[in-house]
Amino acid sequence: MPATTLADLFTWGSEGWSKALLLGLAVTLACASIGYALGIVFGFCVALAKLGRSAILRALASVYTTLLRGVPPLLVIFLLFFGTNGALMWIARGFGYTGYIEVDAFTVGVLAVCLVTAAYSSEVFRSAYEAVPKGQFEAFAALGLRPVPGLWTVVLPQMLRLAFPGLGNVWIMAIKETTLLSVISLAELMRVVGLAGRTTGQPFVFYGVAALLYFLLVGASSRLLRTLEARMRWA
């Protein structure tokens, strides 16, 4: 084991690991936030399909959420990792392109976070919609608003406020899910920490640092969410 002190391990520069750790953290945050943002939008669409009138869309949406919520996220990641190249090449062949297409780990990671987030957030949106009191629907109809502007101006704001805590939980889940992306060699925090542990022979120190960083990230997120939630209540 190299006789280095803790301070040497975390210097800023080529022989220390601080820079690499921060880069890993940045990749983690980027992957989680892009995947989460896309996932919420997609999840909202899935929720619309669930609440809509079309039976086919309703069935598709419910199959989607049951599948994505019932299967380990790691399995979804493996499906995307091994499956997207083939699927894209199959589609491209339909357009007459026969070359090789490769999707990088970051895209797969964002896609994985997006799909899982969409499944969970669609349930959050759906139950928030159902929790809006029936009187509100009757009220906008009585005021002469058509369904679309009524839902948009009366129901949606109340629904978003009800969905907020659930969406916060999904965000924390998205952060935790990014750790799984280290298995498809995306250079996020877990991957960097594993590499650092193997190189320096001090895996406990580095995994400990990762645990601390995730702890702070989740702690800061939930504190921020609680503050926003309290502010919304009085708005």
């Binding site: 935790k176 542990g197 406990f204 995994y207 645990a211």
Partner: peptide
């Protein structure tokens, strides 16, 4: 509850081998 399970597993399996 606020750290990912994967970190916990790795600390136990890979991390503790440091000592």
């Amino acid at each position: 509850r606020s750290t990912p399970l994967l970190v916990q597993i790795f600390i136990l399996y890979y991390g503790l081998s440091q000592f």
